[in-house]
Write a protein that binds this DNA or RNA. Structure first.
Length: 712
DNA sequence: GTAGGGTTAG
């Protein structure tokens, strides 16, 4: 976390600047020409690549009943489209006749180029067959290109057509490589590449990017290195696309030194080369190296800016991300694009910085950036996690098309705001109106919503519904939700029964939910047993120790609390420091418990004292069980409680905002019981709405009541 | 033909 020592993070200053009839089936590939000697295709040499044997292909079983098989016998046609130029000027009657057909063919090609549906494509294909061109690479290349690559295509159809070609050319192979990649079938792509070499078809510069990408995707390190050697052998060491693909492949193999070597050896690097390497360093955690490289980059483009910004966001360096974003806007001619917008929205989401998030959303609208389903999801997630459920719902409702993630995100949004009924309603709408079937994540979010709102019956029903109606087997997360659902509702026996009946060993999350339930319902015996198991399952996570300590503290077993602390010390586990962030007037300030490095700390501490005195007058009693240490002196307990980061943030908010303004606070940990109680009373006494996002959910304190109904 | 963004229990 880069925001240390209760410093103030300036985020202001940028608001004025900008202004199919066949079922999809992937058939396995087979070579129609099978009379070649098997050999290692990777040792294929340049000398024998250009003379493929002219053998007639045996009819393959895939094609016998396919539409492609309806083609007339394969006779050599004078209309081979590669020979079109010979027929430009008709001199004789024969030529005139042929030219008519050629005209027809040219129109056919044009039609293929602008073809929009697979049905249309099939009509063109049958005309090609009538013209006797079903083995012509030029004509069939167009057919295969449409089927393999376009969004309305059909790779299965492309593969059938491909298998009928006696000698597919490099273009056709390259096209099918891309088709396989689009459907995330790297193994099939690699296998076809090997078959291509077997068939002595020479690769060209368009061959390597998809093949290398397939190696990267399939994590085929050795093969990737062999393809690298072939790039050099076939003479493409200066092809930027192939070289960039290589850098990307080595980055995905986490072989940064080799990626760097390719980069350094390139005769001419372009912005993509730089960007790939920068993101590579970032993904491997070498943010400093990435930064150095970024500074050296001659001409930065939005992708390279975004690589750096995204790296900062992912490493929790939000301050740096905002600074770099500002620098980008000042120093370059580039406008906000959807990727940078998404990265910055993610930064705002993580920080809980609603104003900044709104600003980015405004600029997305002003810039005319197309809000695709990914960006829409990012925006909605930002509103949900920054506490503005209203704006999230508005944005969601205004979207013309919604993706699965968008629905899931919105259901999750209702869940974290404790709006179980709304989550259920939205899920029903999704099921009945959206044509998008719910997936694994949908049910994780839906069951979470039920758990957080105490909807036990609904939770039970949807847990069955998921299997019975949608054929989704419950995973660890779903069991976690159900244990949480039963546990929170006090149905510990049912929770235990589910854990015992699970088809897999419960993970630390499931056990943690059970331990949490024991704490809530004061089941010390079971809590102690489960709490200890959880610690052994996750011994480096301080939160596990704190939970058991809290269970002991609830029962006033201070000696056991102290023993847990000793255990943590002996094992070198440090308690993760809790912090609270609050946004006031475009600035995000961070507070840690007892921290005094804020410039206004004296004033803030005085305000905490005043604030607590006020709520004492309406019944506040400090809750000692929120102190995990073995402190017995009342004064000491209060000291430890009073300066929790959340109280400091609230006091700061009361100081810096106008009467009636909503305070929005983001915490990294869960709200403790004492702060929860104090926040309710503060909201009543000072007549303020206080919205707190903790690590699990939102608490909206208003008129002395919390939106979670104390069910959290 | 190569690079960058989203939703997931406790």
């Amino acid at each position: 976390m880069s925001l240390v020592n209760s410093t103030t993070l300036l985020l202001v200053g940028f608001s004025n600047y900008y202004d199919e009839d066949d079922t999809m089936k992937i058939v396995s590939l087979h070579l129609c020409s099978t009379n070649r000697k098997p050999r290692n295709p990777l040792s294929c040499s340049l000398e024998n690549q250009s003379t493929p044997p002219a053998t007639a292909p045996p009819v393959c079983h895939h094609c016998a009943t396919s539409p492609v098989a309806a083609a007339p016998p394969e006779t050599p046609s004078p209309l081979s489209t590669a020979a079109l130029s010979r027929f430009q000027v008709p001199n004789s009657r024969q030529d005139a006749l042929e030219s008519k057909e050629i005209f027809h063919l040219l129109k056919l090609h044009q039609g293929l180029e602008s073809c929009s549906t697979i049905e249309k494509l099939k009509q063109y294909h049958s005309q090609i067959i009538k013209l006797g061109l079903s083995c012509d690479n030029d004509a069939m290349g167009r057919v295969i290109k449409f089927c393999a690559i376009s969004t309305n295509g059909d790779l299965g159809y492309a593969l059938k057509a491909f298998s009928r070609l006696p000698q597919p050319d490099t273009f056709i192979y390259n096209t099918v490589f891309r088709g396989y990649l689009q459907l995330q079938l790297p193994k099939e792509c690699i296998s076809l590449y090997l078959q291509m070499l077997h068939a002595s078809v020479a690769p060209n510069k368009f061959t390597f990017p998809p093949v290398i990408k397939a190696c990267a995707f399939d994590n085929a390190v050795e093969l990737g290195q062999q393809v690298h050697a072939q790039i050099l052998k076939f003479g493409y060491r200066s092809d930027g696309f192939s070289q960039n693909s290589l850098i990307h492949m080595y980055v995905s193999f986490k072989r940064l030194e080799e990626a760097r070597r390719v980069f350094d050896m390139m005769p001419q690097r372009d912005d993509v080369s730089w960007t790939i390497l920068i993101s590579g360093y970032c993904q491997s955690g070498f943010v400093d190296d990435a930064c150095k490289l970024f500074d050296l980059m001659p001409e930065k483009n939005p992708a390279s800016w975004n690589a750096m910004i995204a790296a900062y966001v992912q490493s929790d360096s939000f301050h740096e991300a905002f600074l770099l974003f500002d620098k980008m806007r000042r120093s370059s001619r580039f406008k906000l694009d959807k990727f940078v917008a998404a990265s910055m929205l993610s930064a705002c989401t993580r920080l809980g910085a609603l104003k900044q998030g709104e600003w980015i959303h405004d600029n997305v609208k002003k810039s005319g950036i197309e809000v695709d389903s990914k960006l829409a999801t990012t925006i909605i997630d930002m509103y949900c996690k920054c506490g503005s459920l209203e704006m999230a719902v508005k944005t969601f409702n205004e979207l013309p098309t919604k993706g699965i993630s968008t629905w899931n995100c919105m259901i999750g949004g209702f869940a974290m705001h404790g709006k179980g009924e709304e989550a259920v309603k939205l899920f029903e709408k999704m099921e009945n109106e959206s044509m998008i079937p719910p997936d694994y994540v949908t049910f994780v979010n839906l069951l979470t919503a039920c758990a957080h709102s105490g909807l036990v019956q609904e939770g039970r029903r949807y847990f069955r519904h998921m299997v019975e109606v949608h054929n989704i087997s419950p995973g660890m997360e779903h069991y976690g939700c159900m244990v949480d659902l039963f546990g929170r509702a006090g149905l510990l026996n049912e929770a235990m029964k589910l854990v015992n009946e699970m088809p897999m060993d419960p993970d630390v999350g499931v056990m943690g939910a059970l331990a949490g339930a024991c704490k809530i319902h004061g089941n010390i015996e079971l809590g102690e047993k489960i709490g200890k198991k959880v610690i052994e399952l996750d011994p480096h996570n301080s939160g596990r120790y704190v939970l058991l300590a809290n269970i002991y503290a609830t029962a006033n077993k201070w000696e056991d609390v102290a023993n847990i602390r000793k255990l943590m010390n002996n094992r070198g586990v440090k308690k993760s420091r809790g912090f609270s962030l609050i946004e006031t007037d475009g600035t995000v300030s961070e507070f840690i418990a007892g921290g005094r490095s804020h410039l206004d700390s004296e004033e803030i501490y005085a305000k905490v004292k005043e604030m607590l005195a006020c709520i004492r007058s309406i019944g506040y009693v400090p809750k000692a069980e929120s102190v995990v240490h073995d402190i017995t002196e009342e004064e000491e307990i209060e000291k430890a409680l009073f300066y929790h980061s959340e109280k400091l943030a609230i006091a700061f908010g009361l100081l810096k905002t106008k009467a009636g303004e909503t305070l929005r606070i983001t915490k990294n940990l869960r709200v403790c019981k004492d702060c929860h109680e104090a926040s309710k009373l503060i909201s009543k006494f000072f007549d303020r709405e206080i919205i707190v996002r903790d690590r699990n959910r939102f608490h909206c304190f208003k008129h002395g009541v919390c939106s979670c109904n104390d069910y959290w």
